[in-house]
């Protein structure tokens, strides 16, 4: 099973784009043959609750937990997640933190 936790800052990404990002994550999982469709949890960080470098955060944090894989494949998935975010939301590359880690 592949799980994906997406932490988004409130007001940073419009609702219609969230669905679009979800579709994109499903596409990435399919492209990289990660098995069953990922179970995605969206968690909105309310205003005033997210901070980066001690200042209000504009960062999305995407953590995908899936089967073990070669590092070369992991890097491709990480790049795909970062590209998905920057292309669909218009965020800066510095505003997306992506993690692909093995399910424990």
């Amino acid at each position: 099973m592949t799980y994906c936790i997406c932490l988004l800052q409130e007001g940073q990404i419009p609702e219609h784009q969230v669905a679009d990002l979800g579709n994109g994550i499903h596409d990435i999982a399919a492209k990289h043959s990660l098995g069953t469709e990922p179970n995605i949890s969206w968690i909105i960080v309310p205003k005033g609750q997210g901070w980066t470098a001690g200042q209000p955060s504009t960062s999305s944090v995407v953590t995908m937990m899936t089967s073990s894989m070669e590092q070369s494949q992991r890097v491709k998935i990480l790049n795909d997640i970062c590209n998905l975010w920057t292309e669909r939301t218009g965020c800066h590359i510095n505003e997306i933190i992506a993690t692909v880690m093995p399910v424990e």
Binding site: Y3, I5, L7, S41, I43, V45, Q49, G50, W51, T52, A53, G54, S57, S59, V61, T63, M65, N94, I97
Partner: peptide
């Protein structure tokens, strides 16, 4: 710039910790 600090209510934190 590497350091992110997010605040959550206890119910949401438990969801994150379960994962």
């Amino acid at each position: 710039t590497f350091v992110h600090v997010f605040f959550f209510e206890a119910d949401q934190l438990s969801i994150l910790q379960s994962l």
